[in-house]
Design a protein around this nucleic acid. Structure first.
Length: 210
DNA sequence: ACATTAAGTGATT
DNA sequence: AATCACTTAATGT
């Protein structure tokens, strides 16, 4: 278990910091589909991703969701950063995209380390930056791409995150993530299949054009 | 065999 | 692109 942290972060953090993380963090495992953070949660810990992937969703009052971005190994959640330092609760939901291992770091340590370790400062700063970039990409794709391109990107992204070109999803799942209707997704998927970019089966989709 | 859930499709707005 | 209404196909009990 301890080597998981080493493996994922030994390039990112100095030795002393890794030791501190191990001493203060708690390991936790989530099964695919489990909710890790719910909207409104008060976050007292910051998760570091050791293995797996997480999807970050926004939700409106009616319960409609929208996928913001995926987190991979070596990433952390930008929400917890701002959330832990301020007094605000979570604005997003985090769901395990696949089976996921993470290590939870208490907030107060987090602040300590910002003063103490330059590698930690750098990590936090860069995390913010890349989350921001990923979010801009999603905004761009919503604003400037038509749905077919947006959907194709979604599929490619998902295949990459899961390291598997066979996606275990229903059309309805995709519709929820992209905040559109199932019928629309079905139609576009059909078109993408005719273009030879994907293969459709019940409950799963094979991405050919990666 | 029947019920349930996923996916496909024409028509309408 | 969304919604409705309906069909067809796959799967579970």
């Amino acid at each position: 278990m301890e080597s998981a942290l080493q493996e994922a972060y030994h390039y990112t953090f100095e030795r002393d910091l890794l030791k501190e993380i191990e001493a203060n963090g708690t390991y936790k495992r989530f099964k695919a589909g489990e909710t890790i953070i719910e909207i409104g949660d008060n976050l007292q810990h910051m998760p570091l991703l050791l293995d797996g992937a997480i999807k970050i969703l926004r939700e409106d009052p009616r319960g409609d969701e929208l996928l913001l971005y995926f987190l991979e190994v070596g990433d952390t959640c930008a929400m917890t950063l701002s959330c832990c330092l301020g007094e605000t609760n979570s604005e997003i939901r985090a769901v395990a995209e696949r089976d996921t291992d993470l290590i939870l770091i208490p907030v107060y340590k987090m602040e300590d380390w910002i003063a103490k370790y330059s590698s930690w400062r750098k990590f936090v700063f860069e995390s913010y930056q890349s989350r921001m970039n990923e979010m801009l990409e999603t905004i761009d794709s919503i604003a400037f791409l038509n749905l077919d391109e947006r959907l194709m990107r979604y599929l490619q992204d998902k295949a990459k995150i899961n390291q598997n070109e066979m996606l275990q999803v229903t059309h309805q799942d995709i519709a929820y993530d992209m905040n559109t209707s199932r019928v629309v997704i079905s139609r576009i998927l059909k078109k993408l299949e005719l273009d030879g970019k994907i293969e459709l089966h019940r409950n799963n989709i094979k991405v050919i054009d990666l």
